[in-house]
Measured scan of single mutants.
Amino acid sequence: KKKPLTQEQLEDARRLKAIYEKKKNELGLSQESVADKMGMGQSGVGALFNGINALNAYNAALLAKILKVSVEEFSP
């Protein structure tokens, strides 16, 4: 059984999803295209955005690059 995410991890996910929602049209992104760039399925990206799975440093760095932001913008 997976450990529930901490409040901090949930807040990171909320900020990440908000940045994605704000930038997806400008950058021409969908959850599917983000998933392709990350080498995972769309459901995996959804789980990161919705605070189901915790972000690790690798995925955080990859998402920051895809969204053209710094990791600190969603994970201070």
Rank of each mutant, 00 (worst) to 15 (best):
D36L: 13
L67T: 06
A35I: 01
A61V: 09
V34Q: 03
G41W: 05
K17L: 09
L27I: 07
Q42N: 12
K68L: 04
A35L: 02
K68Q: 13
Q9M: 03
V71G: 04
N25I: 13
F49V: 06
N53E: 15
N25P: 04
A60H: 02
A13R: 04
A54R: 05
A60F: 03
E8A: 07
G39C: 06
A57E: 14
V69K: 02
Q9W: 02
Q31D: 12
I52N: 11
K22C: 10
L16H: 04
E8S: 10
S30L: 02
A18S: 12
L27C: 03
V34R: 01
M40T: 08
E21V: 09
A60Y: 04
I52E: 15
D12N: 05
A64Q: 04
G39Q: 11
S30A: 05
P4T: 15
D12R: 02
Y58W: 12
E72N: 13
N59L: 07
D36G: 10
K37A: 14
N56K: 05
E73T: 06
L67E: 11
L67I: 01
S70Q: 14
F49N: 03
S70M: 01
G51C: 00
E11C: 11
N59S: 12
S33A: 13
M40N: 06
V69M: 00
I66K: 10
G51H: 00
N25V: 13
V45A: 04
K2W: 10
K3G: 11
E26F: 08
Y58A: 14
K23A: 03
R14F: 07
K37G: 08
R15A: 02
E26N: 07
G39K: 11
N50H: 09
L16V: 08
L48M: 07
S70G: 14
L10T: 10
L27D: 04
S70V: 00
N59F: 06
E72Y: 10
E72R: 13
R15I: 02
I66H: 09
G41F: 09
F74L: 06
K65V: 00
A18W: 07
E32F: 05
N59K: 08
N56W: 03
G41E: 15
S75M: 06
L62N: 10
L16Y: 03
I19E: 05
Y58C: 12
S70K: 15
D12V: 10
K17M: 08
K22R: 14
K24W: 00
Y58F: 11
Q31A: 11
S70Y: 00
S43C: 10
Y20K: 04
A18I: 09
V34C: 03
L27P: 04
K3T: 12
P76I: 02
K68N: 13
A57V: 12
K22L: 11
K17Y: 07
I19N: 03
Q9A: 05
D12G: 06
L63D: 07
L62D: 11
L67K: 10
G28N: 12
L29I: 10
G28A: 10
L55W: 00
K17G: 03
L27S: 05
G41L: 13
K37T: 10
N50V: 00
N59C: 08
K2M: 14
L63M: 12
R14P: 00
K24V: 04
A35N: 02
Q42W: 13
N50M: 05
L10Y: 11
A60N: 08
L67G: 09
Y20N: 01
S43M: 10
L63P: 08
A18C: 08
V71F: 00
L29R: 02
S30R: 04
A13C: 11
P76S: 03
Q9E: 12
Y20L: 06
R14L: 07
E8I: 03
E73H: 05
A61R: 14
N56C: 06
S70E: 14
G44F: 10
A60C: 03
T6W: 00
Y20T: 04
Y20Q: 02
Y58G: 12
E26A: 11
S30C: 10
K68I: 00
I66G: 07
A57L: 10
V71C: 06
A64Y: 00
G28P: 06
F49Q: 05
I66R: 07
I19A: 02
D36N: 14
E21A: 08
K65N: 11
E26Q: 13
E32I: 09
Q42K: 15
L27A: 04
Y58E: 15
Y20S: 05
E72S: 14
N53D: 15
L27V: 06
L62I: 11
A35V: 02
S75D: 02
A54D: 05
N50Y: 03
P4G: 14
N50W: 02
P76C: 08
G51A: 01
